[in-house]
Design a protein around this nucleic acid. Structure first.
Lengths: 317, 317
DNA sequence: TATATTTGCGTAACTGATTACGTAACTTAT
DNA sequence: ATAAGTTACGTAATCAGTTACGCAAATATA
């Protein structure tokens, strides 16, 4: 199986599956060896019944980690063999209480020898192996319980994407990108307004020269996100965060977060103590992002934009 | 899942299966995260094709350890998606040669980032675990390759059964068992003969007093096997191994082997250099046993038994 | 050269699990 | 007391794999 050597540990899933198959494939033969008429898939159900006498379908399912229909089916097969009996719970008519029959008890006695031998065989393998499979499985179960593989992969993706993102200061050649990325989202959700054109057509005159800043996020060298910090003289706020836009191509790469963080750092380095922004609640991802960054909703500021229905602020002190 | 703590390592199979499920369950989600339109089960096939350009159905199946119908199905699904293309081998009309299409190549490029992140996530888990799952799996694969679980269990069974078997010397109270066990098999396969009755009705006079021996195998205290060593004065042989019988109840418990070994040891301790026996080739398990004990076929000795069609000897020197 | 065996692979049937769904019984809230 | 929600569990559909089987092409054998 050279496959696995090449592909590396990504294949851990397939590899686990193959080992599982190998460990499991002889099970039917082993029962035959002991002249026990039982299907391997019955075993977990059977075993819990030997330990607990009486259990309902759902209890068994929970105990062995199967779905209840699976247990239901297994029980009906075992019923046919006469290994178990069922009886309705008098107190609760829904519950189907299962227990071993006489015949089942006899089988369970015969099973003991088999369990002893299988256990010995597995202990032998364990003893011959340097690395402890049993313990390793336990650790992996625990670690995956704490944080699923999906979440771990998501984190790695963010890290890697983040490393590719470079935040650079505005230069005149970015004017076109600054304009088009903003026009794209504004005209998708709303209508371009007078003040939009002013800022987007002449960022130099309208933003930078008035003491504001613009940052550009490059992903793999390509400018895919922009964000402006507009100076306001209002007594309460120092800057307004505005004209933030990320290309749809770059969705899910965390560029918005990195960009916004960079602009907040910039504001902080300029001695700002409070940042203001305006947005619209239909832009849910944006609102979420602002929230994650620490912005709080405020009300009742005058705004030149018709599309604004929410205002937020971030205190830097 | 208290199940596993109770039952011990016999459950290694189930536990492996559950871990596999946990590792695998997020796979579909992870593809979605990277906007890759691929089913997890396609991945092994897809991956081998990225490595090898061209492969036939059976080659792929062998490489990834699946059955060929499974690969066949997966390929037909991927064909529908346009990820692969197939073409008949000109030199061999049976072979269906599969390779990635343009679209498939594009996907494979997109997959690289995902593989990097998944690998990083798995390495992270490995790093956090003390016990090395990857290496442990490798060892188990190797050990099971060398000797399957079934064979290991069989050995343990033999050992345990062997420990319950006790070989004791003949006493008069065993005469009934000695007789009935032998009558049982002789009359099942053949007809009782004159010389059978002589020996079975009077083992004391006919075997022991003439310098022979009888051993009895007890299993859990119950006499279930017998075997005689009859003194012969023939110049070449010292003893004949005869009247060996094991109860059908005790089949598969290795009693025959233990008993025969004990009787051979007995002969050796009496200074014998060669043992002789007569049997019939329809008794295959018996012949196999004699063979395993080292007996070799010889020909042309006179015998009082009609049922004898094979003669064997064992040299003890 | 004809015949038998092996090989490649597709289809069909089966297997052991799942999710989806419906029904009946019980519990909780109004 | 009744409505609304929850629980137990059986049936049906689905899924990802398997084995069984059959056909056609290639190869070996007599």
């Amino acid at each position: 199986m050279e496959f696995f050597e090449e592909i590396g540990k990504v294949a851990i899933g397939s590899r686990l599956r193959m080992l599982t198959d190998k460990v499991t494939e002889d099970a039917a033969q082993i029962y035959k060896l002991y002249h026990i008429d039982m299907q391997p898939k019955w075993f977990p159900v059977f075993y819990t019944l030997t330990q607990e006498r009486e259990k309902t379908i759902t209890e068994i399912a929970k105990a062995i980690g199967h779905s209840h229909p699976s247990v239901s089916k297994i029980i009906s097969e075992m019923l046919k063999k006469g290994y178990v009996k069922e009886s309705k719970d008098k107190a609760d008519g829904r519950r189907n209480v299962i227990s071993l029959s006489k015949k089942g008890m006899k089988i369970s006695a015969e099973l003991k020898d088999q369990l002893i031998d299988v256990n010995a065989a597995i202990e032998e393998i364990s003893a011959q192996a340097q690395h402890k499979l049993w313990e390793a499985i336990g650790e992996w179960e625990f670690l995956l319980e704490q944080k699923s593989l999906l979440r771990r992969v998501m984190e790695k993706k963010k890290q890697r994407d983040g490393a590719k993102v470079e935040i650079v200061a505005y230069k005149p050649e970015y004017q076109e990108v600054f304009r088009s990325l903003n026009v794209e989202w504004i005209s998708r959700y709303f209508k371009m307004e007078e003040s939009d054109y002013k800022a987007l057509d002449d960022p130099q005159g309208y933003i930078l020269d008035k003491g504001g800043f613009i940052l550009v996020a490059q992903y793999d060298g390509e400018p895919l996100g922009v964000c402006a910090l507009i100076k306001i003289n209002d007594g309460e706020y120092d800057f307004e965060l505005a004209k933030m836009a990320v290309s749809p191509k770059a969705q899910g790469k965390n560029i918005g977060f990195i960009l916004a963080n960079a602009i907040i750092d910039k504001a902080r380095s300029l001695g700002a103590s409070k940042i203001y922004l305006e947005s619209n609640t239909i832009l849910k991802p944006a609102i979420n992002l602002y929230h994650k960054l620490g912005f709080q909703k405020v009300a009742g500021k005058p705004t030149p934009y018709a599309r604004c229905n929410i205002q937020m602020e971030l205190s830097l002190s």
